[in-house]
């Protein structure tokens, strides 16, 4: 009799465990979906090409070219056969740097940050070199990759 009882008890135990595991999983699945709803999806960033210069612009003059991408000032710097495109925002506290041809440097007037032609820090407080864009040259045209953004209230 005791054996029988044990068997029954064990079966009963497995049954109950099964039922309440299923219930637990259902509740988990429910809350998982709720959480997914609350936390907006982080979309993978995508990029598009943005024309910043034609190669021939640098034929005579190797001076960095300043243009704006939206409101961000950007410098296109030719070197050897390549181009480096850097954000003109100082990495220290976000002022706009300017190119000083006679001193061959980018200079930030706010706290006297200094960067060389390639954007490396050569003086002053900036913690890191100027931010760089990914560059691609096609058909003698210099493009940078700019993040895709959409005009929507939800961006």
């Amino acid at each position: 009799m005791a054996e029988e009882d044990k068997k029954v008890n064990r079966r009963e135990f497995f049954f109950k465990t099964g039922v309440f595991t299923a219930l637990g999983l259902a509740i988990l699945a429910f809350f998982r979906n709720l959480l997914l709803y609350i936390f907006p999806e982080r979309k993978e960033k995508t990029f598009h090409k943005y024309l910043v210069a034609h190669e021939k612009e640098f034929k005579k003059d190797k001076r960095p070219k300043q243009i704006n991408i939206g409101k961000t000032p950007v410098f296109v710097v030719p070197y050897d056969d390549h181009y480096k495109v850097m954000s003109g925002i100082c990495t220290h506290l976000g002022c706009i740097v300017k190119w000083e041809q006679d001193k061959d440097r980018f200079f930030c007037p706010c706290h006297k940050g200094e960067f060389d032609r390639m954007g490396n820090v050569i003086g002053g407080p900036p913690p890191r070199p100027l931010d760089e864009f990914k560059v691609v040259v096609e058909n003698h045209k210099v493009y940078v990759y700019v993040e895709d953004k959409v005009r929507s209230p939800w961006a």
């Binding site: 979906n33 709720l34 997914l36 709803y37 999806e41 209230p153 939800w154």
Partner: peptide, 17 residues
């Protein structure tokens, strides 16, 4: 209307909620 569209079409599980 736009936010309901957003909930229904863009937000994960939004259509479900």
């Amino acid at each position: 209307y736009e936010s309901i569209r957003h909930i229904t079409e863009d937000v994960r599980m939004g259509y479900w909620i």
